[in-house]
């Protein structure tokens, strides 16, 4: 798992880290050892880039894993 993913997972699970990130995003990012590209994307709130870097853009899970009643 990449450091970026590890950070995302921790930010979701750890309330203290999430609060710290709101106050000092750069500090938290530095501690997690992210690449320059990852750091820039986070600090610039470039969400499409973050989704690409975390793999969130991969696959068609969101709609394809669901199905309507008329399918059956």
């Amino acid at each position: 798992m990449s450091n970026l993913l590890r950070l995302m997972k921790q930010l979701g699970a750890d309330a203290a880290l999430a609060r710290e990130y709101e106050k000092d995003a750069a500090g938290v990012i530095a501690r997690f050892g992210l690449s320059d590209e990852e750091r820039d994307a986070l600090l610039n709130k470039n969400y499409p880039a973050i989704k690409r870097l975390t793999g969130l853009k991969e696959g068609q899970f969101a709609t394809n894993s669901t199905i309507s009643a008329y399918d059956s």
């Binding site: 990449s2 993913l5 997972k9 696959g59 394809n64």
Partner: peptide, 25 residues
């Protein structure tokens, strides 16, 4: 596993032997 790439990568850390269902698309 049938999730987005991020969750997939996180589960893969726990279970490197996971089977990816996305290949069926």
């Amino acid at each position: 596993v049938l999730t987005d790439g991020a969750a997939h990568a996180m589960i893969a850390e726990l279970r490197p032997d996971l089977i990816d269902l996305r290949v069926h698309y």
